[in-house]
Simulated scan of single mutants.
Amino acid sequence: MNVSGRGFWFPPTVLQPAADDDRAVREEIFGPVVAILPFDTEEEVIARANDTIYGLAGSIWTTDGARAMRVARALEIGALAINSYTAVRVGTPFGGFKQSGIGRELGADAADAYTELKNVFFAT
């Protein structure tokens, strides 16, 4: 990887095996870094994935469509892809849950991020 300019740069990196309390697992990393955490059950992986203050984006990789939908419903993630690395599309809302952002970008929901709803009742 040939990177220039100021900043801290990592080449695509796989951290394996990682532990639940590793910094790379507990914090959001905006870069080509993935932490591998093996799991035994669907329930275990859902609990571990939701045990965070973040919830921006994620992906599920499986050949079992029913499992993919069960896990997708259970995950506290704002943008989720199944068998893909990205769920961002211009026409769909993008944003996180918990401490991963405020509101939604893109799609019809984007205007809500810039809108404050107020009800005014005027008796005449």
Rank of each mutant, 00 (worst) to 15 (best):
A19L: 15
A19S: 15
A19N: 15
A19W: 15
D20I: 11
D20N: 09
D21P: 07
D21Q: 15
D22K: 06
D22R: 07
D22M: 10
R23F: 10
R23Q: 10
R23P: 09
R23Y: 10
A24Y: 01
A24T: 04
A24G: 04
A24V: 11
V25D: 02
V25G: 04
R26C: 03
R26F: 03
R26T: 08
R26I: 01
E27N: 14
E27M: 09
E27C: 14
E27I: 15
E28G: 12
E28A: 02
E28T: 13
E28K: 10
I29R: 08
I29N: 05
I29D: 10
I29H: 08
F30T: 14
F30W: 13
F30C: 12
F30G: 13
F30H: 13
F30I: 02
F30E: 14
F30N: 13
G31E: 04
G31Y: 05
G31P: 02
G31W: 06
G31K: 03
G31L: 07
G31I: 04
P32E: 03
P32A: 06
V33A: 10
V33I: 04
V34N: 00
V34M: 08
V34T: 06
V34H: 01
A35F: 03
I36H: 13
I36V: 14
P38T: 06
P38Y: 10
P38M: 04
P38K: 13
F39M: 08
F39S: 03
D40R: 15
D40C: 11
D40H: 15
T41F: 10
T41M: 01
T41E: 05
E42D: 11
E43V: 14
E43H: 13
E44K: 14
E44I: 09
E44M: 01
E44T: 09
A47V: 06
R48A: 07
R48K: 11
A49D: 12
A49K: 00
A49N: 01
N50H: 05
N50L: 05
D51P: 12
D51F: 09
D51V: 13
D51M: 09
T52C: 00
T52I: 06
T52Q: 06
I53R: 14
I53P: 12
Y54A: 01
Y54T: 01
Y54F: 08
Y54R: 02
G55C: 05
G55L: 09
G55N: 02
L56W: 02
L56M: 06
L56G: 09
L56T: 05
L56V: 07
A57Q: 12
A57D: 06
